[in-house]
Structures are given as structure tokens and as C-alpha cells.
Amino acid sequence: MSKAPASASKTAPESVVRHGVDHSQELGHGNSPAAWTCVIVMLVGALIASIAFVIASTPIFIAGAVVMVLGLIAGYIMRKAGYGVEGSKLKNSGH
């Protein structure tokens, strides 16, 4: 185990290019209100569709699929509104 503090991070070389892709930039994990909303709404839709599949109900299955599409749309709208990764609504204003 390393004795380095938890805040210490390993730094990658300035430009790491493999197979034509620059790997020096951190990709992040999509931790934003837009991403969380999208995923949670889509999970609810998948749950509805799964239950409908088990009970063999086509209308409820379609409703679950519609909820999943609505999750994608909600995430996209929230991202455009500034709630995505590095969005304008999430930046620290210095207060």
C-alpha cells in the first residue's frame, strides 16, 4: 500500500496518443443532475417494461418504453439548460 495522501494523483504524460486517440484528457463519469435524471427515469421505464413483459401486457410494455425515451429527452433538455457536465448552472460563481 502506498503512503501517499489520498489527494495525491498520478499524472499522465502531457500527450498520450494511442491509435489516433488522445488519452490525456480526463473523461469524467457523467456526474451531473442531467445524467442522474436521465438514468433514474430510464431505470423506472425499464422496470415498468420488465414487469409488463412478465405479466404479458403489451400496452404497459409500450408505456415503459415511452418512459425510457422520455428519460433520454429529459437528460438532453437538462444538459442544454446547463445542468450537464461542466454546465453553466453548475459552475461555482465564487460566492
Rank of each mutant, 00 (worst) to 15 (best):
S2Y: 02
E26C: 07
V69L: 02
V67M: 04
A4Q: 10
A35D: 12
G45F: 05
P59H: 04
H29Y: 12
Y83K: 03
K89G: 07
K89Q: 14
I48N: 02
L72Q: 10
K91C: 08
T11W: 05
V44H: 03
A34S: 14
A65T: 01
S57K: 04
F53A: 14
I73E: 03
V67I: 09
V54K: 12
V54M: 11
K10Q: 10
G64L: 00
A52K: 05
N31D: 15
V67G: 00
G87N: 11
S50T: 14
C38Q: 10
G87H: 02
M78F: 03
K91M: 15
H23Y: 15
G87T: 07
Y76S: 05
I51M: 08
I40P: 02
S15K: 13
E86L: 09
P13N: 00
Y76M: 11
A56Y: 14
P33V: 09
G20E: 05
I55M: 09
K80R: 13
V44Q: 04
K80N: 13
S9I: 10
I73A: 09
K91H: 15
Y83G: 07
E14H: 03
G84N: 05
E26S: 12
A74K: 00
S88T: 15
H19P: 02
G71P: 01
V44F: 10
I60D: 02
M1E: 05
M78W: 09
L90C: 02
G45S: 02
Q25G: 13
A81K: 13
A49T: 11
